[in-house]
Write a protein that binds this DNA or RNA. Structure first.
Lengths: 367, 367
DNA sequence: TTGAAAGCGCTAACAA
DNA sequence: TTGTTAGCGCTTTCAA
């Protein structure tokens, strides 16, 4: 039972297969499979022979053949708007980390916020039979999109996989999805409350795409906080548009130029806050002495702004990790917190330097 | 030849296969395959029947079976240090974009800068038979790692795939890799030259891991520029350590406290520059009035710092796109610029606001 | 502890 | 224009 021949080596282009290994080791492919997977007893000597053959031949198992035969792909899919936006990239990092920890590879795709593309990408991941498909980020209120998404959730459930909505509202009660969310409304309420307690009355809500679930909820939290303190929210105090630094900068510049009377700004996310801060600094407006500023998400760079940004902490990486854990957990694990297929992660206000009591003389009324 | 039966629908858990579709449409699987791939003529009526069956059944092709039968995976792999670092995430974005444009999915993995893990990840991608494996970022001078990498390059070539080194030096002449690089030494030379022309003589080189190819090259460019102008580079003017905001901040704070006599700082990358800028701002040092500052990479947020950072532009996203194009291009495309399997992308100094002529009285000597 | 053999779901000659 | 028939490379009973 020694090595048989050399002919299996380097068959031009034609890659080395398990049959080649079996032949060289003088065993059957079944045995090779067994030593590879270590799921059945194999004699030590046989094991060694096989390992040697694998080394000699430079064999690397074909994951597709494996997936086909065993219907286990060891992969997860994740779909985000934009790979460069820190909100998404931290979540992707968490997903990749957890996937990797559980021996899985991570297929990522960017939808650019396009609903059709998102659905198409989910379909491609269904094709790949990934163990989970994680869709990240807010969505617009669109019954059609929800229906199509629910269909995919069913298709995934049908192949033993799971659709996870990460930071996105449910697509319907009966859809077999799992959800990893965080409290947008509550966080917005809390941080607005914080500003009000500091003494602010004229608080501007800045940014967030109109109608996107995330911003809708944040705006709602802001409104509820204002109303619960008997404060009015006239239309000029709400300026929606986008999530992004550029938007924050442009809009804030305009607002400062218009001398709108506000003593604090609640930016819909940290990127908008960073842009707004730039605009204020450029205009000579001091934060927080002249105008207070808060954000949302607590992306790491927020604590590196000058002044450090007061914001609402969202554990992005943890949400990513939790998304894959939840997807992979068995539904019948009745004792775990996962039992109901939905996790709502708590948020909390992180008080740093960018918000303080309003000045005696509002900035807008000076000069 | 109308639909035969309903029994194929919803076979619990057991997903819908091409056979189910064929049966329902009353054709053979070969025909189904043909309408799916559109690579052979099929009668319109047949086509319609098949499409209807696909819809009715909610069929989604199994990518693994497809890959196994056709040995075409339509996927690319990319390995980076960290998905959250803008240097890498912009490259990943470019790769994902180009992959997506060419109908491919993108498998991403993070190595955390660990060489063994990187090799392991490449092996997993070989298992996946991706059309290309793109390894991003500098490397340490390590013959062993280079040899193992060269082995993988050969393995990939053996299965008709390609190893692309993106922003990383060659692993040996005979290794069948393709390279997408950019000029670290030249860019560093140019930006140092820029500072010297402005009148600076005491220029600090800050950051970059010791021995990492990227920082080695940047430091070399800096040294060459200094020497070509007859300027000394005493050891206290070179402070290496890491690529990262935190490092830039900590190191710069210390340097300011030590009152080291410098009029300009060349940060090894923009992240280090951003950290250094923070430290300077916090210490009341004005940029560029008191000390000039330049970076490297030109990540988009660099133009949003205050002051806007003068730096060396590296087209990160483009490098990502180019990596997949190069990998996918045929070697025998003798007319293209790809013919030699290596692309060196040009870099250029972007002059913005953070570097100016030195002050008459150096900051360090005041008070 | 090992081998033989039947698939997994699809593609691609080869015929018809 | 369509069907038949081999595989692709692996896993997994079932026997031995």
């Amino acid at each position: 039972m020694t090595t048989q021949s050399e002919r299996a080596t380097m068959r031009g282009g034609h890659s080395v297969t398990m049959t080649d290994v079996a032949e060289r080791a003088g065993v059957s492919t079944a045995t090779v499979s067994r030593v590879l997977n270590g799921n059945y007893p194999v004699a030590q000597a046989t094991k060694d022979a096989v390992k040697r053959a694998i080394d000699d031949l430079g064999y690397t198992a074909n994951a597709h053949a494996r997936a086909l035969a065993s219907s286990a792909t060891h992969s997860v899919g994740i779909i985000v708007n934009d790979l460069v936006d820190p909100f998404f990239s931290y979540i992707v990092r968490g997903v990749e980390q957890e996937a990797s920890t559980t021996g899985r590879l991570c297929i990522v795709a960017a939808s650019q916020g396009d609903v059709d593309r998102e659905i198409e990408l989910i379909d491609r991941m269904i094709s790949q039979r990934t163990d989970a498909v994680i869709v990240v980020g807010g969505a617009y209120d669109d019954a059609g999109a929800r229906r199509r998404m629910a269909e995919r959730a069913r298709a995934l459930a049908g192949i033993g996989s799971t659709l996870v909505l990460c930071g996105r509202p449910s697509v319907g009660d009966k859809a077999p999805t799992k959800i990893v969310g965080y409290d947008n409304e509550g966080g917005a309420f809390a941080v607005t409350e914080h500003l009000i307690s500091l003494g602010h009355r004229r608080i501007l809500y800045l940014g967030g795409p109109v109608g996107l679930s995330t911003s809708v909820a944040r705006l709602a939290g802001y409104r509820r906080a204002m109303q619960s303190r008997g404060l009015d929210v006239p239309t000029e105090l709400v300026r929606q548009g986008a999530f992004g630094r550029r938007f924050g900068h442009a809009e804030m510049s305009e607002i400062l130029a218009s001398k709108l009377d506000v003593t604090a700004v609640f930016a819909a996310n940290d990127l908008v806050a960073a842009g707004a801060l730039d605009a204020m600094t450029a205009a000579g407006v001091r934060v927080p002495e002249d105008i207070s500023l808060v954000g949302y998400d607590d992306i790491p760079q927020s604590s590196e702004l000058t002044p450090k940004l007061t914001t609402v902490h969202v554990p992005l990486e943890e949400m990513g990790r939790e998304s894959v854990r939840l997807a992979l957990s068995q539904d019948d694990d009745a004792f775990g917190r996962h039992a109901d297929g939905e996790i709502i992660i708590g948020t909390r206000v992180v008080v740093r330097e960018s918000a303080a009591a309003p000045a005696a003389t509002p900035w807008a009324s000076r000069r």
